[in-house]
């Protein structure tokens, strides 16, 4: 499988998180998965400014040419995307959220009724499964996990799985194939 890891750790001095991601990558590669790890803090990505250019002017293409194009391509090429982030203020990092917001070009503005509520038409035929990998530097923060899960489950492409960095990388590697 093709797996894309988006590392949303904003702090270079939080090395444990980055080395966990590196271990996970190796563990996945050991099982013959093709893994791409993108360190988001090394990119200078803009926040989405809600201009709708990617819907109305250049369909599918963002107005900012700041490296988002490569992320979108990798995203669409993957079977599983692992959105990873330390928990900061009880939520995923602003760095990771920035990429979430910048996925808007993957959708289309047309409305459809889904599960008794409005939703958007999807631009592409195929999307990867979305998963989350979260960490808390202090003790395991169950409440934040549940809150984050609740929000992500609402999204149009859903949430296939949520993991904690308290788990062994081998455990996650085993579970990836079954989601």
């Amino acid at each position: 499988m093709r797996i894309l890891i988006l590392n949303g750790n904003p702090k270079a001095d939080y090395v444990e998180f980055d080395s966990y991601i590196e271990d996970l990558k190796q563990s996945l590669e050991y099982k013959s998965h093709k893994v791409k790890n993108i360190m988001l803090r090394n990119l200078q990505l803009h926040d989405c400014i809600g201009c709708y250019t990617c819907w109305l002017k250049t369909p599918g293409v963002c107005c900012f040419n700041d490296g988002i194009e490569d992320i979108l391509k990798e995203y669409l090429a993957a079977d599983v995307v692992i959105l990873s982030s330390p928990i900061i203020m009880y939520y995923v990092s602003a760095l990771l959220k920035r990429v979430n917001d910048r996925l808007l070009p993957l959708g289309h503005p047309f409305l459809v009724l889904r599960d008794h509520r409005m939703s958007h038409v999807q631009r592409y035929n195929r999307y990867p499964k979305t998963t989350l990998l979260l960490d808390n530097q202090k003790e395991f923060d169950r409440e934040s996990f549940q809150l984050i899960e609740l929000v992500y489950k609402k999204s149009v492409r859903g949430l296939a799985k949520i993991w904690s960095t308290k788990q062994n990388v081998e455990e996650i590697t085993d579970e990836v194939v079954n989601i």
Binding site: G50, M89, A94, K97, N100, D101
Partner: peptide, 19 residues
């Protein structure tokens, strides 16, 4: 505004300043 079912990234940046 609601961005992908949550606060926009910028508002999260603000919330992180409140730590």
């Amino acid at each position: 505004p609601l961005y992908s079912y949550a606060m926009p990234a910028g508002v999260k940046t603000f919330l992180e300043q409140l730590e």
